[in-house]
Design a protein around this nucleic acid. Structure first.
Lengths: 225, 225
DNA sequence: TGTACATCAGTGAACGCGCGTTCACTGATGTAC
DNA sequence: TGTACATCAGTGAACGCGCGTTCACTGATGTAC
């Protein structure tokens, strides 16, 4: 008996115990959760509507009823991903204390930690080829982006602005690029040459703070440090 | 008649004209070229052994004879990709002139330009999940990496070294991350919010040089500028 | 130089697989009166 | 409060698709003598 079949059996039993009727109750949310489990355990490539259905313990045709197609379901997962990323960035900003430059660097570390803790979901969020062009997705991504933008403005000693000047934008792009690139290379295993397996944590602890110091922040008002 | 079938017909005719015998001559190279075409035109997801075989005008089973499986063929394409990336980086370094900091920044721009000119192939190169753990692949990737490392050493006023200190390594990682992240976000269309379609070239021309100046290079000897 | 034979480099039909999707269906839920 | 009916939220069997892979095969090429 294959593991996969075992899983399905267990889940079917679970489902049967959990509900007397075949009406699920909240299959929509359950399918999103099931998809996140599949991503976490087996990666983006392992996802299919049928795999999500198996996880949730429903028939193969059920997901289409709620999401239309695979992109529809994945888009919901990506939206939730960006919402959680935003929460992550805010929490890590605060972890940085009161000095705006330190807050920015801490937020940058948060971005990388998020990617590491949400591997496949993070990768999915930047796979537009697998996602719908949904305004809610744009809005959720925009909010994460705005979070970074605010941190950069403050680190430069400027008031937060939704429409900042080119100097700010360059630094936003640089900050985003460096943490995104680092996260992407990290998840792809490109740093395994420098730190294999067990030493990865130490490598990250030592590297990330210094990495983020290499981005030069031109301050417009007197620095707090 | 579907386009795909049309393609196959044309290619079969081409093939028939090109060779009197069904022995291809150099099917191995032809399949690699065919794969690069599929990647260029339809992206990584569109690739399959059968698709490559159709492109090359041979039977579905032919690729397996030369490459074993899909990962085997894709790995050859990725190796060729890294080799071309290395050439790209050297060429762009030289474009930067004689001042080492300028050479480093020019090389960084080359990295981004490579990604833009080789979209799917670039993405494939950083999809280890689709590639074999082939020593030749590691060697080719290592050479690109060494190219960047040399440029960073020189920009810091140090002699090129295969085993540099932690300060150099941090700057190597920072440089790599920023260009890689920028390239990745660019290819995913994340900058479309700032520059749609036709204006992308102008956006890049204006952004890339400034972007690369945000990476602070601590110089150990007297700067040449 | 000619011949016999082994190996190479493919063919093309066939197989089973998981996939998305369709379809007729049905039990549960919600609504109107 | 009860009943009739419409709609909701799924079922599960079936379909066709492209895929990787197997298999018996074969014409061309290379090698030994």
């Amino acid at each position: 008996m294959k593991i996969r079949h075992g899983d399905t059996t267990i889940l079917n039993a679970k489902k049967a115990a959990a509900r007397a009727t075949y009406h699920h109750g909240d299959l929509r949310a359950a399918l999103i959760a099931a998809t996140e489990e599949v991503l976490l355990e087996h990666g983006v490539e392992a996802f299919s509507l049928r795999a999500a259905a198996r996880r949730a313990g429903v028939s193969p045709a059920a997901p289409a009823y709620h999401f239309g197609d695979a992109a529809g379901l994945l888009t919901e997962v990506a939206i939730a991903g960006f919402e959680e990323l935003t929460r992550f960035l805010r929490r890590w900003s605060d972890k940085g204390g009161k000095i705006p430059q330190a807050r920015l660097r801490s937020q940058g570390e948060g971005y990388i930690r998020f990617a590491l803790a949400n591997r496949a979901r993070f990768q999915l969020m930047f796979r537009k080829d697998k996602l719908k062009a949904d305004p809610r997705l744009f809005a959720a991504a925009e909010e994460s982006f705005a979070c970074l933008q605010t941190a950069v403005c403050e680190a430069m000693g400027l008031p937060p602005s939704a429409n900042p000047g080119p100097d700010v934008m360059i630094l936003v792009l640089a900050s985003w690029s460096i943490v995104h690139g680092f996260a992407h290379l990290l998840l792809d295993g490109q740093f395994d040459r420098m730190a294999e397996d067990r030493k990865l944590d130490k490598f990250l602890d030592a590297t990330i703070p210094k990495l983020l110091q290499t981005v030069a922040v031109p301050t417009r008002s007197k620095p707090h440090e």
